[in-house]
Design a protein around this nucleic acid. Structure first.
Lengths: 249, 249
DNA sequence: CGAATTGTTGAATATTCTCAACAGAGGTGG
DNA sequence: CCACCTCTGTTGAGAATATTCAACAATTCG
C-alpha cells in the first residue's frame, strides 16, 4: 500500500500542483507533453521592481506568470514612458519568433515565473501545433485588449480612463481581493498592484491628474480608498457609467 | 507545341498571377495547398466608403487585401471614434477563432479583396499548421505595431503624431507613389488614402489640429502639399526628428 | 458651373500638464 | 517604540496644448 502511494506521488509532476496549470497555455498539453515542457522549465521568484526583459536585447527566455503582476513598458528617447500591458497570473511573457524583445518587462509586484529557455521553447512550440494554437489564441486576445486600450488612449477623458482602469484591474485581480466585512462582501476590494505614477503611465496621464481623479471619485462615494493601495468599489454601476461601455467586472 | 503551351497555361492557377501571392499569408502554402485555398476564395471589388465588417456581428468571412486600404474602427456610444488599424495590400482582414467581429472594417479607398468563407477557412487553417503559423506571425507583427501606436497615443504631442503618421503611410504605400520629376526621385510622394478627419481618428486628435499641424510642417518646408491628398516628403531626416525614433521609411 | 463636401484659419474655451509646496505613509535605526 | 528620513501621494496656481465653435476657402463631383 505504501509502495503504491509513493509510486503515485512520484508520478505527479510539478505541473500537476501548479496553480495555473489549467488556465495558462499549458492547458493545451496532455500528461506526456507537459512532462517534456516541465523538463525545460524553471521556477523563479522575482522581487518587485526588478527588470525581467530589456527592449532591444536578444530574447533568451519566455515565461508563464504564476503569481504577481508584470508590467510591459516602452519609452521615448527623452524618457516619456508608457505601460503597454500588464501580465497577471497565467499570462504568457515574451515575444516568440523574433530576435529581440520589443519592450521592457518589469516586476510590478513580487512575481513568480515559470521560465523556459527561448530556443528550446520555440522548437517545442513548432512541434506541438496544439500548443502553438493555444498561444496564437492568447495572442489574439492580447491584440483585442490592445485595440480596446487604444480607443481609451485616443478618445477617453481622464475621468473615464481612471474608471476604466479600476474596472480592468478589478476584473483581472480576483485573487487579490481583501476580505471585507460580510455586509460588503459583494463590493470588489483589492490592493492596487501599481503606484500612482505607474497608473499614469498606463493611462497616458500624469501622476497629478490620476491623483485628482481618484480623489474626485472618492469624494463622490464611487470608490473607497482605505490606504494608498487599498481600494474598494462600492458603486460598480456608477463606475461603469463613467468608464463608458466597459466589459463586466 | 501548341498543345504543351495550352496545358501549361491551364495549369496556372489564379493565385499564380496574384499580386500578393508571395507577401500575403498564402506564401506559407505550396502549389497543391494553394489550389485548395483557391477553391474557396472569391475576388471582390469594394467601393470606397463601403462597410465590410460590423463590430458585434457574427463573422462570416475573412479576406486578404489585394489592393487599396481598409480602415478598422472602434466607437464609443456617444460617437467618439478611433481607427485602430489600417490594412494595406497583402494584409489579412478578420479576427479568427472568435464568434463576432471586434471592430468595424470599412473601405478607405476602393479595395480589392480575396475573400474566404469563415468556417471553411478556419477548418483549413487548423489542418495546415504552416499556414496557421504564418497567420500567427502576422498577428504578432500586428500586436507589435499596435503597442507602438499606443505609445504614440499616450505620450506624443500633436506635431509628433502627425509626423509619425506620415512616415508610417510612406512606409506602407510604396506602390502608390506618384512619379515626381527626376530631380525629386528620391523624395517620397504619394496620395493620402485618408481624409483629414480619418487621420484625426487615427491619431486621437481633431480635424482642426491635424490641419494646423500639416500647415505648420508645410510652412517649414518639411512636407509638400500639392493638393489635399497629394503629399511629398522632401525632408525625411527632419520629419524623423520630429516624429522621434520611428522606423525607417 | 454650382452645390456639397472637405479643409483651413481664428478666437475663445476646456482639459490636462507643469511647477511647487505640503501631507502622509512606510521603513530604519537609535 | 518613537523620531527621523525618504518616498509617495495630494493639492493649488498658472501655463500649455488641444478642443470647440464659427466663419470662410478650396476642392470635388454631378
Amino acid at each position: 500500500v505504501l509502495e503504491k502511494t509513493v509510486h503515485q506521488i512520484s508520478n505527479i509532476s510539478r505541473c500537476d500542483l501548479c496553480a495555473i496549470r489549467h488556465s495558462a497555455i499549458c492547458n493545451a498539453l496532455d500528461r506526456e507533453e507537459i512532462k517534456t515542457l516541465n523538463k525545460m522549465a524553471m521556477r523563479r521568484t522575482i522581487p518587485s521592481g526588478k527588470m525581467i526583459l530589456r527592449e532591444g536585447e536578444a530574447r533568451t527566455v519566455f515565461a508563464n506568470v504564476v503569481s504577481g503582476v508584470v508590467k510591459l513598458t516602452k519609452t521615448l528617447d527623452d524618457g516619456r514612458q508608457h505601460i503597454i500591458g500588464l501580465l497577471f497570473p497565467s499570462d504568457f511573457l515574451g515575444r516568440t519568433f523574433r530576435e529581440d524583445n520589443p519592450y521592457f518587462a518589469e516586476a510590478a509586484t513580487e512575481v513568480e515565473l515559470c521560465i523556459f529557455p527561448a530556443d528550446e521553447f520555440e522548437r517545442f512550440l513548432r512541434s506541438q501545433p496544439g500548443l502553438e494554437h493555444r498561444l496564437f489564441q492568447y495572442t489574439l486576445s492580447e491584440l483585442d485588449a490592445c485595440q480596446d486600450w487604444m480607443l481609451l488612449l485616443a478618445r477617453k477623458r481622464a475621468e473615464e480612463r481612471v474608471a476604466s482602469f479600476l474596472l480592468m484591474i478589478a476584473k483581472r485581480l480576483p485573487h487579490l481581493r481583501c476580505c471585507g466585512s460580510p455586509a460588503k462582501a459583494a463590493e470588489p476590494s483589492f490592493l492596487l498592484p501599481l503606484s500612482r505614477g505607474e497608473i499614469a503611465d498606463c493611462l497616458g496621464l500624469t501622476i497629478e491628474t490620476v491623483s485628482r481623479q481618484l480623489t474626485r471619485l472618492k469624494n463622490q462615494g464611487i470608490i473607497g480608498l482605505q490606504s494608498n493601495r487599498e481600494i474598494s468599489l462600492p458603486n460598480l454601476d456608477r463606475l461603469r457609467e463613467i468608464a463608458h461601455q466597459d466589459s463586466r467586472v
